[in-house]
């Protein structure tokens, strides 16, 4: 085991080896059936280096991210455990992080989380005991110092590759790179951004990121995804918090004949991947295809990002897993 690595996972190894990384988001099932998770993972596992398990995204309830991660590691997949600050306080979160690490999770993405009002149960109590930066720093303390936030010692600290989100596409634009600097200082090793549909704006942002030297301190993965039609685009930019889609892209989809819209949406996504790949400081892409998982493989393939490297093995656990002393599970 190489002690320079902070985690035992594949994503960190792919990124540190200088390869262009690909991660993808798994749409969590509204079900108690593990097979639905495995089916969704099956189409993603061969085409990416990490599968994001979302934590009640859009404030909608689905199978929990920690449970999805447990199912995925059991099958040898490499999940990215998303933790949002909306639903749990510091006591619950630190416990979940330990539990996830114990089950073989190597990556954690720390998020503020969409507000409860974005979902279908707006009557819920919002927690937000931490913000994302405090969450990052807390998990970093657990990993590097082997302590809970209270100072109490951990017998075995979690080995985790820490992620944070960034949204360069919403105000205050000038401050966004500094916000990123804060997240990296707090402990982020990799960044996954919000959907990028505005490449010129993203270029401006990355210029500032490079000026601040941030691209050398963390790996930046750009969020991308296909749009099914101009209606989807319109819905996303008005209803989904933080998504910015320029008029030109909506217009391009509107002009496309109906039967070719899906193809065109995919085309746009591939073009954006190819454009951001050329920007200095970009280390990978994060594909989010809400209810269009079947397109993820095609997009990654058409963007020329296959086959994925097999560093650290196809599975998540680079170190031998301890077996249960009694039943050998």
């Amino acid at each position: 085991m190489n002690s320079e690595y902070k985690s035992d996972g594949r994503l960190e190894r792919v990124l540190r080896s200088g390869r262009f990384a690909v991660t993808a988001e798994l749409n969590p099932p509204d079900s108690a059936d593990p097979d639905e998770v495995y089916q969704a993972a099956l189409v993603l596992s061969e085409v990416c280096d990490g599968i994001n398990a979302t934590d009640g995204s859009g404030a909608h309830c689905h199978m929990s991210s920690v449970a999805i991660c447990a199912l995925l590691t059991r099958a040898g997949y490499a999940p990215i455990f998303q933790v949002s600050c909306r639903d749990r306080n510091r006591i619950a979160i630190q416990g979940d992080v330990l539990g996830a690490a114990a089950m073989g999770v190597s990556n954690v993405l720390c998020l503020t989380g969409d507000d409860v009002t974005a979902g279908d149960q707006p009557q819920a109590k919002r927690v937000f005991d931490f913000d994302s930066i405090q969450l990052l720093r807390t998990i970093k303390i657990m990993r590097d110092e082997g302590k809970f936030l209270s100072g109490r010692k951990l017998t075995t600290p979690p080995r985790l590759f820490l992620g944070a989100a960034s949204n360069p596409f919403v105000p205050p634009f000038d401050w966004r790179p500094y916000r990123l600097a804060k997240k990296i200082e707090a402990g982020a090793d990799f960044i996954q951004s919000q959907y990028c549909f505005d490449v010129p704006r993203f270029r401006q942002f990355m210029q500032k990121v490079r000026d601040l030297g941030l691209h050398e301190k963390a790996f930046f993965l750009v969020g991308v995804g296909p749009l099914r039609s101009e209606k989807t685009a319109e819905f996303m930019r008005t209803k989904v918090p933080g998504v910015h889609i320029p008029d030109a892209i909506v217009e391009r989809l509107r002009k496309t004949p109906k039967e070719k819209k899906v193809e065109e949406g995919k085309r746009i996504c591939v073009e954006i991947i190819q454009q951001v790949r050329e920007i200095e400081g970009v280390s990978g892409v994060h594909v989010m295809a809400y209810r269009q998982e079947e397109l993820v493989a095609e997009i990654i393939s058409e963007a020329g990002l296959l086959p994925r490297p097999r560093i650290g093995g196809p599975v998540n656990n680079a170190r031998p897993r301890r077996t249960h002393p009694v039943n050998g599970v």
């Binding site: 600050c85 909306r86 503020t112 989380g113 969409d114 507000d115 974005a118 919002r126 937000f128 913000d131 994302s132 930066i133 405090q134 989100a165 960034s166 949204n167 919403v170 105000p171 205050p172 401050w175 500094y178 916000r179 804060k182 707090a186 919000q194 918090p241 933080g242 910015h244």
Partner: peptide, 19 residues
């Protein structure tokens, strides 16, 4: 509304208003 102490969330609207 999210009690953030370290900066804006990613949900800020294009006009600079709250999510």
């Amino acid at each position: 509304p999210k009690n953030l102490r370290n900066g804006p969330c990613g949900g800020v609207r294009a006009n600079g208003h709250c999510e």
